[in-house]
């Protein structure tokens, strides 16, 4: 039987894989995918907590699941807007390589 610790460990590992995608890849779309991975990891840990902490009637705490719902919605909106920005950036700079986006350099 999986314990809460197992779920959290998996969630943490997923999060760190997303983090490494953000830190190590230089294509901006891949970085964006890493962000999605991180959000999903937090969704997993929220649902796990919702299932493992039962309220007084023995039912899961649905507030966390509502929060997950909201997170998924917001993530979808964020992806839409972010991709629109990437498209605009591509049109301006003709590149998706993140190291070429350094106009704010000293």
């Amino acid at each position: 039987m999986p314990t809460l610790a197992n779920y959290l460990l998996v969630s943490g590992l997923l999060f760190s894989i997303g983090l490494s995608a953000v830190l190590l890849r230089r294509n901006i779309l891949i970085i964006f995918m890493g962000l999605e991975l991180m959000l999903s990891a937090s969704n997993l840990s929220l649902v796990a907590f919702s299932r493992f902490h039962l309220d007084l009637e023995g039912m899961p705490n649905y507030n966390a699941q509502v929060l997950v719902f909201f997170i998924i919605t917001v993530a979808a909106a964020e992806v839409a807007v972010g991709l629109a920005i990437i498209v605009a950036l591509y049109r301006a700079k003709q590149t998706t390589h993140v190291e070429d986006l350094n106009s704010l350099k000293f």
Binding site: M1, P2, T3, L4, A5, L8, L9, G12, L13, F15, S16, L19, S20, L23, L24, R51, F52, L54, E57, G58, M59, P60
Partner: peptide
Amino acid sequence: GGLVVGGFVAALSHVLQSIPKLQAIKPDLS
């Protein structure tokens, strides 16, 4: 990057092992 990620994972596993409440198994739904 590897160091940052590794550090995070290490901290996480340390925390998970040290809290006994997290070792509980899935309770049954009513």
